[in-house]
Design a protein around this nucleic acid. Structure first.
Lengths: 227, 227
DNA sequence: TCATACGCCATTGTCGACAATGTCGCCAAC
DNA sequence: GTTGGCGACATTGTCGACAATGGCGTATGA
């Protein structure tokens, strides 16, 4: 098979890190094609992707560092499984980090620069959600995230948030696909955008934190579905 | 030489991560024995520590992931050098994270459980600083950090904060050793402990953020000295 | 029938050697 | 004297083979 790839598809976040195999595995994990607990055998991956076991090993080490894979000595690697408690802790951290990101974005970027996103998150996305075009919704969400992090202009913050994205993206994505929370979430994102377009940093932070809190409550409620 | 080690010395933070060589290099970097920019040759390290180049490579990859080392293709590894702007961004993130940590610690731990630290951060440490026993001060600071993170009981938060510790520890340590800010910092830490001992989560978060802000200002002021 | 000890096999950990690449010094030409 | 090309060397990247370990099926006995 060797590489298959399909890297150009939308709605799956920033690459950021190194080895090609790590990126491919990361995408499959986030899409739930490799559910938590799935064993990742070095030899099998090496043959599938036509590379040496050593390279596979490095990719697995990278994914372990990102928290996507767990490895035990002589026990091999597997897609890491988090408990609900783990996710709640992560969301607690994400809340303050995304809040900081929103505050910095509001301070750094001109209020007018958000108007295009305000428009897109208005009627168009509402219609998309109503007709079940969730891919478009996820795509725009990704754009919003990227724009906010670029505007925040903090390499350090962006990198830390990227780590939390990696660990939470799979359940967040399933939360959108499996449950019916999109319209509620859309309203929360609109509030953030309104604050950004108004140039109100404090309101942007507060509304962003409320959005994360909403996502956290949804995760808690629908845990059996997304798990 | 092979390993030298001296691991048992105080005042140098939690190990947390894997390979022994990575821990040793990390310690030397944090102590400024390997200043930023120092090249790290694989063969030389392999011979010095009596291990294979492959193991050295993995250790360097780990340190790269932790942000302590920078590596370019065919250009080798070197101790990573951050700009003042980088550090200011990191401190901005640390501020919200440490604030969250203090708030959680105040909520989870019994107010009385901080009394021993309140006592130690009183007259004893004041005397230690006055007589220049900075090692004792750094040691107690490390204890305080560990206690707060244990009390916060968030694996995720602790792990993220550990990453920021790694990247900022060297300059923070030099800030204590090279400048004369210890007594000011001690006062800030006392305020945090007072809030914790009073069981006031909001005050703990606020005073912890003020402490980080103080450290940030000091870093900015004395940057030429610690760099 | 079930518990337990044992041995095989799949899988991971480690090493040494070879290939690829960047760097630095030297030499020649302008 | 300076600059450009070029070649040797040091350093890193990659691979295949061997060693070490854990899991699992099997056989045996109570």
């Amino acid at each position: 098979m060797a590489y298959d790839d399909g890297m150009s598809e939308p709605a799956l976040a920033a690459p950021a890190g190194g080895r090609p195999l790590a990126l491919t595995l990361r995408r499959r994990i986030l899409r739930h094609e490799l559910p938590p607990g799935t064993p990742l055998r070095e030899q099998a991956l090496a043959e599938e992707f036509g590379m040496s076991r050593q390279m596979v090993r490095e990719a697995l080490a990278e994914l372990e560092g990102r928290g996507l894979v767990e490895r035990g000595p002589f026990r091999g690697a597997a897609v890491r499984r988090y408990t609900l408690g783990d996710y709640l802790q992560m969301m607690q951290v994400r809340e303050v980090l995304e809040g900081l990101c929103a505050r910095l974005a509001a301070r750094n970027a001109a209020p007018d620069s958000w108007l295009d996103l305000v428009a897109r998150f208005g009627a168009p996305l509402e219609a998309a959600i109503a007709t079940g075009e969730l891919a478009a919704y996820l795509d725009q969400l990704e754009t919003l995230r990227r724009r906010m992090r670029d505007a925040a202009a903090s390499e350090s913050l962006a990198s830390t948030l990227a780590g939390y994205d990696d660990r939470t993206a799979m359940v967040m994505r399933r939360l959108v696909l499996v449950t019916d929370r999109s319209s509620q979430a859309l309203a929360e994102h609109r509030a953030v955008l309104a604050a950004l377009a108004a140039g109100d940093a404090e309101a942007a932070e507060a509304s962003k934190r409320r959005q994360i809190q909403g996502a956290t409550r949804a995760l808690e409620r629908y845990w059996p579905l997304v798990q």
